[in-house]
Nucleic acid binder design. Sequence first.
RNA 1: GUCCCCUUCGUCUAGUGGUUAGGACUCAGGAUUUUCGAUCCUGCAACAGGGGUUCGAAUCCCCUAGGGGACGCCA
Length: 477
Amino acid sequence: MSVRVRFAPSPTGKLHIGNARTAIMNWVFARHENGTFILRIEDTDVERSSEESERGILQDLHWLGLNWDEGPDVGGPHGPYRQSERLVIYREHAERLLQEGKAFYCYCTPDELEERKQKAIAEGRSANYDGRCRNLTEAERQAFEAEGRKPVIRFHVPEVDLSFDDIVRGEVTFPAGQIGDFIILRADGMPTYNFACVVDDGLMQITHVIRGDDHLSNTPKQIALYQAFGWETPHFAHIPMILGPDRTRLSKRHGATSVEEFAKHGYLPQALINYLSLLSWSSESGEEILSVQRLIDEFDFSRVSKSPAIFDVVKLNWMNGVYIRQMDVPHLTDLCVPYLKKAGYKLPDRLVLEKIIRVVQPSLEKLEDVIAKSEMFFIDESEPENEQAVVMLNRESTQKVFWSFLRQLDTIGQMTVEQFRKIMKVVSEETGVMGKDLWMPVRIALTGKMHGPDLPLVAEILGKEKCRRLIKRWVLE
RNA sequence: GUCCCCUUCGUCUAGUGGUUAGGACUCAGGAUUUUCGAUCCUGCAACAGGGGUUCGAAUCCCCUAGGGGACGCCA
């Protein structure tokens, strides 16, 4: 049977890095197996779901380069792919369990439930649902209805051990009686996660459920449901979660956590996919820079680890830099333009622009870094970045160097890398100043910075007249 | 509290009874260079603890500790 997997986000916010990793694993596995990758929107939480979130998630998925074979926007033979459009299906399936005596109406209010739960915990008993409404008589039901109570439908969980063979965890067993009768249909008729998930996965003929291991303890509930329906259970693969540096679930307070934010800062989708893939998975080759195609070719569940991984933005930065350095200049230029425009820089013609990008390319970790790294080419004059730079400019030898430099400038035509080197050589001979004492003042005058790209390259881009102006500025009359 | 899961350098990981416990990021040092970066080289740094099993355990078993997750009319 051909592999069918799904990514089922709930549209209650941005696409989170952890969810993105789950999506990537599903997608990579599907492509590796020549299977089908399905996108399903789990919007049963009316309060928190929004169309805007759904659009954002689809956009982020596209940005990552993931494509799906079936989904809300592309359709497919098992639709609809939005849970809010499948309510009759859930209703029908809940009715069926009701008729077969595998589910029951429960009239307990949230307050009553909470109170009994607290009491149970205080007395050292299980915090699970206590089965209060499991065997209501018709009269009792009528009484509750008369009170105006709206019932939920609960699934009667059989008292048996539930175990399954998780692809990454191995055999996992939950002892009988550990799972309370859980709600499958809320009072407002909306299905709950565990129910909708099973109905959909069953009907959509999902063969492998690949998801974060925070769902591990949901799995026995879902298996009980599969068994109640008489459906074959899919294979489960619970992948470890991604944690923040403090070893807790990655959240906003750990900094950027949404794909959108990473995109905004100028991370490359290939780099993000590559990095995320390496969290809890490794290539047999031991290599770390892996193209999407290699990820697909080499993916194997046996190489997925069981322990959670901490998200390390420093390593992501390094990897993103590797991808930036590998990129050809025209392409990188295209990607940098929006950032430069946003910074308000007046862009020169394409040829010069590509020269600038080529020069700063090795120093970029993220695309947004281009703003700071290329500033010197876009502003009229850069102020010395610190006191030490000012001191350098005011040295006695510096004046000699600058005078000599300006004289030599008149002897050349256009400023080029070669001409600049030649000038510096002559200046050195003329003044006797060399090394750092020679180069640093010139660098500071031209760029304001004590560090930066190879100076001849900078000078060529700046051009003869701008070099003259910038040097002249520091010459004492 | 109950149940489930996890535990190798600071971080990501390799490792499936016999290895000087390997690699990557970070960091430090060196080479190169006018500087930073990039690049190359070198180095620092780990089997959570305790019991077993075994000639031999990072690898198998048990216990403890720590961490995570579930116990929602969230997903």
